[in-house]
Design a protein around this nucleic acid. Structure first.
Lengths: 197, 197
DNA sequence: TGTACATCAGTGAACGCGCGTTCACTGATGTAC
DNA sequence: TGTACATCAGTGAACGCGCGTTCACTGATGTAC
């Protein structure tokens, strides 16, 4: 089999998958080009043919993460009938992803990202498309409700803040390390929003 | 002056301050023992006399950060008369700290913390006291209100999630990088909670 | 008040490590004719 | 269907860097008598 010598285009994807596994095992700081290459069964110089630097690998991992994130929300949304049920389902998907992929979730939303200038255009476009789609899911789920405080985006801002904070504080917290013993279910703290007239 | 040779106990604090400056300039990943030492004007071996490893330095920085965090909330709370005003003031303090100290805020709440086993007892106690005090401020501000969903801790969980998510998404986001153009003021999305009977 | 001595808090050199990146190379794949 | 050749996607060695940590040392400070 020639695969012993050549990856036939699968290496790029394999490196992304390896990076995700590394992060999930050891947190965002555990990622390195050399470890990704090793995990993909390839020499540490090989990734240079697929990413023009580690920043590009990180961007590709982030894009892939947002795609998984959006898919998780869509899966949860399927079958929810009422607007309230749909909104709650989207949020449950949000939280499910955060719980299942703690490190990726942290990685996706950390404010001190790398220099975006180093990311090449197609990867950047992919990243923006996937993260935009994730937000779109949330925005659509908020659409049937009367805007909070009468502002466009008010409900989105409230729901997004609430679910994101809950995810950070309660869903991805290290083993029981929160001042609130057992936090309430998310469904119990999501306010009732009146439907649009 | 003998300070040329000896720091007279001020080095420990100087190293913590240096670490905070480093993080605020370059994010949590910019911290290193050697850079802290350099910024404090001391050889890179000197910190070993004050911290038994970089994990201890990080813990001390985290403790100091929580102290600043609590102080910011207390400053904002001062002078607020009604329960609603106090709750809002605490939240504004929360957000003010996140905005002013983006990197510290991220550092304090990141889920993949170092091995806590390496932190020596007094630093650990200090850290727990300061982070406990921060949460206590928030809990006290929630106390006058009827518990959300009838659960103990319900209001705290809602408010904390909401303000924390808002801080992460809107207060510490990199230059305008949020799908919601201009987010609403936090005061507009904080629900009205009924007072206790 | 002096003196001997222990302790403290620095220095500078050295260590080994993992990292990203570059380089010449090589063998397999794909293409033109 | 063969053959010459360009391109692609790997390899392994080497580079320089910053890192945490250890070590013997030294001079200043504090203490016992």
């Amino acid at each position: 089999m020639s695969k012993d010598k050549h990856h036939h285009g699968a290496l790029r994807e394999a490196l992304i998958a390896a990076g995700i596994e590394l992060m999930e095992a050891g947190g965002p700081a555990a990622l390195s080009l050399r470890k990704c290459a090793a995990r993909a069964g390839v020499s540490h110089a090989a990734p240079a043919h697929h990413f023009n630097g580690i920043v590009s690998l990180k961007a590709a991992i982030m894009a892939r993460s947002f795609r998984m994130f959006t898919e998780t929300m869509r899966t949860h949304r399927a079958g929810a009938g009422t607007p309230r049920a749909r909104l709650l389902a989207i949020c449950e998907g949000y939280l499910a992803f955060a719980r299942r992929h703690r490190a990726l979730f942290q990685f996706m939303f950390q404010p001190f990202a790398e220099d975006r200038a180093q990311i090449n255009a197609p990867v950047m476009a992919e990243l923006e498309a996937h993260s935009g789609a994730a937000f779109q899911e949330l925005a659509e789920a908020c659409a049937p409700f009367e805007p909070v405080a009468g502002q466009a985006g008010g409900t989105e801002a409230l729901v997004w803040s609430l679910v994101h904070g809950y995810a950070m504080l309660f869903a991805t917290a290290p083993e029981g390390g929160t001042p609130i013993g057992t936090p309430p279910d998310f469904a119990d703290i999501l306010p009732d929003f009146p439907l649009k007239k």
